[in-house]
């Protein structure tokens, strides 16, 4: 895309883009750090995630203000309009990812030391890695303007769902084995659920980024399975 006749218009758009990238990087870092803090019972790291969330919120506010000012001032059209509206939406999903990571971090104390069995820690870690890959991927494809890669990326979300379902099953077994595990397992369950929801926000971001770049919607995705099906099985 060529440059605008008014060059400050380009600078304003670039600034918004930079904020998206910053928020994307931060959301990835927060996701990773919160899971690490959880699995290693690292309270200091958890605290850092909680304070990073303030930065995330500030960046989102800044992006909103810049986007609204740009709309008022420039009345953007076509792909410019899509980028600005898309940026507002993507920022709101990124901000939600930050909230979910913070929520994981806040549970670190409650889950407690050594409460997580090895294999379970491994499953949650694997899930976090998948989620992280998605978060980093979506930001990268957006920055590199690679809409085709987003189609594949969105389909990858299904792997997170599958992983989540298996973590869910595993947690159920621990709770059935020993009711004393229930408190920590419930917290871990929320953590896993948060990771799964981060994946959903990545899907939203992928859809918005695709629309920003191409002007058309990502093709319809098939309905995905969730843990309610597992509950029915487990209860039967």
């Amino acid at each position: 895309m060529g440059e605008h006749t008014v060059s400050s218009f380009d600078e304003e758009l670039e600034h918004i883009d930079r904020l998206i990238r910053d928020m994307g990087d931060l959301s990835g870092a927060m996701t990773r750090a919160s899971t690490n803090a959880l699995l290693e019972s690292d309270n200091a790291l958890a605290q850092r995630v909680i304070s990073d969330d303030t930065i995330m919120d500030a960046k989102q506010r800044e992006l909103d203000e810049r986007a609204i000012t740009l709309i008022a001032k420039r009345q953007p059209m076509a792909q410019d309009l899509r980028s600005v509206v898309g940026a507002i939406r993507m920022a709101s999903d990124l901000e939600r990812i930050g909230d979910l990571a913070k929520n994981i971090a806040k549970r670190v104390g409650a889950v407690g030391q050594g409460a997580t069995p090895r294999s379970l820690a491994h499953s949650i870690d694997a899930m976090a890695s998948l989620v992280l890959q998605q978060v980093n991927g979506v930001v990268e494809h957006y920055v590199r303007r690679n809409p085709e890669a987003l189609v594949h990326l969105r389909d990858e979300d299904e792997k997170i769902d599958i992983q989540y379902t298996s973590v869910f099953r595993e947690l159920l077994t621990y709770m059935m084995e020993d009711p004393r595990n229930i408190t920590s397992c419930t917290h871990l369950l929320f953590c896993a659920k948060n990771l799964e929801r981060i994946g959903d926000h990545v899907t939203n971001i992928a859809e918005n980024a695709y629309y920003v770049m191409t002007g058309s919607q990502l093709p319809v995705q098939r309905p995905k399975l969730d843990e309610t099906q597992v509950t029915a099985e487990a209860g039967s």
Binding site: M1, G2, E3, H4, T5, V6, F9, R74, P76, M77, A78, Q79, D80
Partner: peptide
């Protein structure tokens, strides 16, 4: 059209 309506001419 894109260039014109987005102010890139």
């Amino acid at each position: 059209t894109q260039d014109y309506i987005t102010g890139r001419f």
